[in-house]
C-alpha cells in the first residue's frame, strides 16, 4: 500500500515526514513559498523579544498561518536548561500548545548539544506537561535516557547544525531507530536531497532541516527536492532494499544465450 503512511508523535498524526525551519530566508514570501513546496505540516520557530520600538514590523504569523501549519517552538540559542525551560514556558503561553522542540547547546563552534543540560530540561519539561521533541547527539544510550526522561521524539544530529555535511554516522542513527519506541527524526546536518533520503532509508520517522533549503540557490526548488527525497527514502525503506553482494549478478537470464 502506497497510501496510509502517516506518523504519530505524542498522539498527533502527520502525513509529511519533512519538518522545515523558518530561519535564514531572504524574505517571508520566499520562506512561505518554500514551506508550501516542501509539503511540511510542521515548521520550527524561535521565540524572541518583540521590537517594542517598531511593533508594526511584518511578523512570521502574517505569512505562515499557525492554523494551517503546526508551529514547533524551538529553544535554539539556549545554552542552559533554565534558559530553554524559560523559553518554552513563554512559547506555550504565546502559542497555546505543548508540543515543543528542545535543544540545549554546548558550545557555539559546533552547536553540539549539552546532553547533561538537555536531559535535565527534558525531565523538567515533561513534568510540567510539555511534549518535548529533543535534539541530541547520535548516541543510542543517550537516546534511551531521553526517552525515559519523557522525550516524545528523539532528534539526533546527522552532522553539526548548518554544516550541510550529511549523515556522518549511519550506524548510530540506525541503532537509535532500532532502540527507540518514540519517533526518531534526523535533525541537523542535511545538505542536499540524497542526505534526506539516506536518513529515511535508515528507518527514521522524519527529517528536520532549515539551512539546506534556505541557503540553496533556489530555496523553493530545493524544498521540492527535499519533499521528493523524503518520500523516496521512506518508500525505499518500506519496500525493503535488496541485499548487498560483493560481486556482480547479471540481470539478464544466462539461459538461451546465442
Amino acid at each position: 500500500m502506497l497510501t496510509e503512511d502517516s506518523w504519530t508523535v505524542a498522539g498527533r498524526s502527520f502525513t509529511s515526514r519533512l519538518i522545515v525551519g523558518t530561519g535564514k530566508y531572504k524574505s517571508f514570501e520566499e520562506n512561505a513559498a518554500a514551506v508550501a513546496a516542501s509539503g511540511a505540516e510542521i515548521v520550527t520557530v524561535a521565540v524572541r523579544r518583540v521590537n517594542i520600538s517598531d511593533p508594526n514590523q511584518p511578523m512570521l504569523m502574517d505569512h505562515i498561518d499557525p492554523k494551517k501549519v503546526t508551529y514547533l517552538p524551538n529553544t535554539a540559542g539556549c545554552f542552559t536548561a533554565e534558559d530553554a525551560i524559560r523559553t518554552l514556558r513563554l512559547a506555550r503561553e504565546a502559542g497555546g500548545w505543548d508540543l515543543v522542540k528542545l535543544e540545549v547547546l554546548g558550545e557555539a563552534r559546533t552547536l553540539y548539544p549539552n546532553m547533561r543540560e538537555t536531559l535535565r530540561a527534558t525531565e523538567v519539561l515533561a513534568g510540567e506537561g510539555f511534549l518535548p521533541m529533543v535534539y541530541c547527539v547520535d548516541d543510542p544510550i543517550a537516546a534511551k535516557q531521553l526517552e525515559e526522561a519523557g522525550a516524545v521524539a528523539i532528534m539526533p544530529l546527522g552532522a553539526p547544525i548548518g554544516s550541510g555535511l550529511g549523515l556522518q554516522n549511519r550506524v548510530t542513527i540506525r541503532l537509535i531507530v532500532e532502540g527507540a519506541s518514540v519517533p526518531v527524526l534526523v535533525d541537523a546536518g542535511v545538505g542536499t536531497a540524497s542526505d534526506a533520503a539516506v536518513a529515511m532509508e535508515l528507518g527514521c520517522d522524519g527529517v528536520l532541516m532549515n539551512t539546506a533549503i534556505a541557503e540553496a540557490r533556489d530555496p523553493v526548488m530545493m524544498a521540492t527536492a527535499m519533499k521528493a527525497a523524503v518520500e523516496a527514502g521512506r518508500l525505499a525503506y518500506r519496500a525493503g532494499r535488496m541485499a548487498k553482494r560483493m560481486y556482480a549478478d547479471p540481470s539478464s537470464p544466462l539461459a538461451g544465450l546465442i
Partner: peptide, 10 residues
C-alpha cells in the same frame, strides 16, 4: 517585563 513572539528559526 519580557514580551516575546514567534520569529523565523531553525
Amino acid at each position: 517585563y519580557e514580551i516575546v513572539h514567534f520569529v523565523g528559526g531553525g
